[in-house]
């Protein structure tokens, strides 16, 4: 945009380009490294080993909180799952290692684990504990859809998408932890390759993603799980809490906590009335339905 036309780019971008042109060490501004100081990228906290183990831990959460299937059954049978948890957690921090050890003490027969999962997260019992971020955010679900777009934006930025056949929403805890696992493993690889700029990009993405998403509500999720379970999933959510808290401190994050509401439901009752999701939110509650008279005539 010049003085005599309205055509062009944003003036602030022009100003940034102008600044960049004065300093040849600063590259084009339209890259994922926007707002990053590449010169300081080598100071990004972390190392190859902990990045790898963080990636492995987050991956274990993605597997552990998903509906139990063959993959988890195989891993649990060989004790690889719990061994990996403890090994990775101890590498990161001894206290987290202690929390990870608790997960193994709560293992049970696979069928029992399936039942436990179903009673907590399954539609079989109406999703007792919501694994979705949007559920925990303030305000009605209708006004939080932007968060879904933001999450999708993170996935898109790293050329990731939800796999065919995975029919859950993008804010499911399994997808969030799977994504952070991906970022951590990328970080480990880039550190091995001495790709300073690449490390800065993925660590910045971890910062933003944890601060804007998982870091806001993991503790409420853990509270909810612990309120309804005292076994494997409570221990696993405690470990998730321990790791994310460690991450928040390590990356110096300041996430905006979600409200500490005593009850969390998938649908916001204020919007849909007492009947909630059961009848589409017309406002009629179950008692009202029972009182409706019906003369037995042909409704058609």
């Amino acid at each position: 945009m010049s003085e005599n036309t309205i055509l062009g780019g944003p003036p602030s971008d022009t100003a940034r380009r102008s600044d960049a042109s004065r300093d040849p060490s600063h590259a084009a501004v339209d890259s994922p490294t926007d707002e990053l100081d590449v010169d300081e990228a080598s100071d990004v906290p972390g190392d190859v080993a902990t990045a790898y183990h963080r990636g492995r831990l987050y991956g274990a959460f993605a597997l552990g909180f998903d509906r139990p299937g063959d993959e988890l059954q195989t891993a649990l049978a060989a004790e690889a799952y719990t061994d990996d948890l403890v090994e990775s957690a101890r590498t990161i921090d001894s206290e987290i290692g202690g929390v990870a050890a608790e997960v193994g003490t709560h293992l049970e027969a696979f069928d029992a684990l399936c039942g436990r999962w179903a009673s907590l997260f399954g539609v079989e019992e109406g999703i007792t504990v919501s694994p979705y971020e949007l559920t925990y955010l303030p305000g009605p679900l209708m006004t939080n859809v932007r968060q879904l777009a933001d999450i999708r934006g993170f996935y898109d930025a790293f050329d990731l998408s939800i796999a065919p056949g995975k029919n859950d929403r993008g804010d499911h805890v399994c997808f969030l932890t799977s994504f952070t696992s991906h970022l951590s493993l990328q970080e480990a690889y880039l550190r091995l390759e001495s790709d300073v700029e690449g490390v800065a990009v993925v660590v910045d993405a971890q910062r933003r993603f944890l601060e804007d998403h998982l870091g806001r509500w993991y503790w409420r999720f853990a509270e909810e799980v612990s309120a309804h379970d005292d076994g494997f999933y409570a221990a696993l959510s405690d470990l998730l809490s321990a790791l994310v808290e460690y991450e928040i401190e390590r990356l110096e994050l300041d996430p905006t906590w979600v409200p500490d509401d005593p009850e969390v439901t998938e649908w916001n009752e204020d919007v849909f009335g007492d009947s909630g999701r059961s009848c589409g939110g017309c406002g009629l509650n179950d008692e009202d339905v029972d009182q409706l008279s019906w003369d037995g005539g042909d409704p058609s």
Binding site: M1, E3, I6, L7, G8, G9, P10, P11, D13
Partner: peptide, 15 residues
Amino acid sequence: QAIYKREEDGVVLID
């Protein structure tokens, strides 16, 4: 001059 018209598609935006 905080409002501009994009060269690539003519969309009008506020910076």
